[in-house]
Simulated assay, not measured.
Amino acid sequence: MLTGAVDIPERFNPWAPLDVMAEPDWLTGFKLAHARRDPTRCLAALARTGMQYDLLPDRVTGEGCGFENAVRLRSAGVRLGTSPSLSCPMALSFFMWEKHALQPAAKQRFGEPVVAIEHLGSYACRNVNRGEGAVPGASRSRHATADAFDVAGLTLADGRRITVRRDWSGNGDPADLLLRDAHRGACRFFDGVLGPDYNAAHRDHFHLETGGYSMCR
């Protein structure tokens, strides 16, 4: 008996849950954005990543500062040094970038995975920094809501260390190309990405964020 129902494979169904392990396709961005918008969906997707984290209680730390639905990452498949506090959307986007953009790029350029990521922090109750420091009266940074993460460097499995400050050179060597692949890949999984070509304040790191304006600079 015909019912009119159509069985759509999950990979072609835009409303199916995000499969964090699947190779990204043309629907991944939509599914990721859908998961990030809903706290329950976001945490469910995050639970499927295999990352280890502690749930953080919602808190307000100042005017325009604080976080909701946030976690403290304890283990993310790569070493992170200090454990960053990230909103669930940021943590989910971080996983997608690390697994589906950063690691493939590292293996392509060096034949080695990334085993550690150096960062300059995540949550901080401060205003936007456009190069002159956090300006009083300016809008709050996405860091103020744990929706941003600053990546300064990478360590490969063979011990090789690559930093944004030194190796974003434009000379086309493997380290430069890896950083450019990582930056370009981040633009697929975060709402905002700023790097050394944006301004002097970002000469030594990539600023990655969710929830703000769409930008890839």
Rank of each mutant, 00 (worst) to 15 (best):
F94S: 01
H34V: 11
L55A: 14
D173S: 11
A44R: 13
C187K: 08
H202E: 03
M51F: 13
A146W: 01
A157F: 00
H202V: 06
L208D: 03
W15S: 10
H34S: 12
K107W: 06
H119Y: 04
A106N: 07
R161L: 06
G131T: 13
R188E: 15
T40N: 15
P196K: 02
D158G: 14
V151W: 01
D176A: 07
C187E: 07
F30T: 08
R161V: 13
P136K: 09
A5P: 00
A182N: 01
K99A: 12
V114C: 01
P14D: 09
V60N: 09
A16H: 09
A101L: 08
R160P: 04
G170Q: 10
D181L: 07
L56R: 12
C125W: 09
M215I: 15
D176F: 05
R166A: 15
Q103K: 04
R130E: 10
L32S: 02
L55M: 11
A45N: 07
T3Q: 09
P89K: 05
A186N: 11
W168T: 06
Q108V: 09
G212R: 07
P113S: 12
L18V: 01
T155S: 11
A182T: 04
M1S: 11
M1R: 10
R130T: 15
G192H: 04
R59S: 13
R79L: 14
Y123V: 00
N129L: 08
T61F: 10
D147S: 15
P113Y: 06
R109A: 04
E118T: 13
A148Q: 01
R142P: 07
R72T: 04
R48K: 13
L43Y: 13
L179S: 00
G133M: 08
V115H: 05
